[in-house]
Structures are given as C-alpha cells and as structure tokens.
Amino acid sequence: MTDTDKILNPGMNARETDETKSVLLVGVGGQGTILASRILSDGLMRAGYDVKMSEIHGMSQRGGSVTTHVKFGSKVYSPIINEREADILVSFEKVEAVRWLSYLKPGGMLVVNDYEIHPLSVLTGEAKYPDGIIELLRNKVPNMLALSASQAAGDLGNVKAQNIVLLGALIKGMKLDDIDWITVLKDIIPPKLYDLNVNAFKAGMAFLA
C-alpha cells in the first residue's frame, strides 16, 4: 500500500515518497522525445524503481504533436499519464506546453524549451502562432523553467542534442542526479555521438545549478 495522503511536492527528492511520479514529455515528431524518455526510463530502472513508459509511433511521428509518458515508483500500474497528473511537464517546443498544460498537476513543474516550430497551418497563414507564450506560462505556473535547449545544443555543435539538454534539466529538476546517468548514456548513445550528448546532458543540468 502506498501512503495516499501524502501530497506530492514536485521538485522534492523523488526518493522520499513511494507515490508514483509522472513525467510527460511533449514535442513535435522528430525532436527526440522517445530517445530522452528511453534514457530516463533505463536510468530509473537501474536505480531500482518500477518504471513504465508509453510512446506513440506511426502517423503522428510525421511532424505531428507527440507525447511520451514516463511513470516510476515502487509499483506502477497504468502506463498513461492523465490530465492533472504529471509531476513534471517537459515541453520540447513552446506552444506544445500550452497544448498539453492541462496534464500538469496543481503545483507541478513545467520545463519549456524556448523554441518554436511552426505547424503548416501557421506557415501557410491560416493560423497564428501565439505571441508571448513564455510570459503567459510564467504568469500561471509558478514552478517553471524556460531554457533555450536548442541554442545550448547548437552551441555544442548539433541542435539535435536539444533532447538531451532537456533531459539534463529534467533530471536536475527532479533531484535524480545521484543516478549514474553518464553510464546510461554510454550504454544507449552510439559512440560517435557520445561526447556531444554527455556535454548536452551537463549543459542541461547546469540550467538548474
């Protein structure tokens, strides 16, 4: 039995509770949410948690809005995160944070990549990409980190490593940095890209130092 009366306080040490913790990663197909979630799940399993992760393949991967769910604790049942349940919402693209914000729990933490990818409806002028998203979010969500993961990754040589920058920030935000993530990265990332991704991971952690 879990202690169900304990109110979760995201950002606290995840180990202090045996309640299930939920991390929702959202972004645009092709941004690498699945790889980031895979590394996260693997590290959590190695640290002794029960872990479930749910990803979506197929049609939505073609530039559509995508989500990956990671849940961990002493015992996880459903692999799905519902609305108002995510302890942390990590948005790889900023308007996606607005789209999926209802999944963040009251008091939850929001990590947003300050990066825009315009959907076709905006590119063709049919829809408008909203202005001032970061400010709107910041006014609502007290526990929020906006960072330019894409720029940080670009500075390291490849914008595609933005997913690992965000992973670093997320892990620091959840105070899970005592797990040996470097070994996990080594086991999962191809050798050619290992240095880049370790640097990206460290850059992500540094945003919350």
Binding site: E96, L101, P119, S121, A127
Partner: peptide, 20 residues
Amino acid sequence: SEEGRWEVEATPPPRPPVLC
C-alpha cells in the same frame, strides 16, 4: 471531478502530421 486544470489564454495552432 475533472475540475481545476491549468489553462492559459492562448490557442495553440493545430499540429496534425504532414508530408515531410
């Protein structure tokens, strides 16, 4: 109840899958 979800005053443009 499903009450009490976060909301911001912005409408995200639809992002369906597209030809690459």
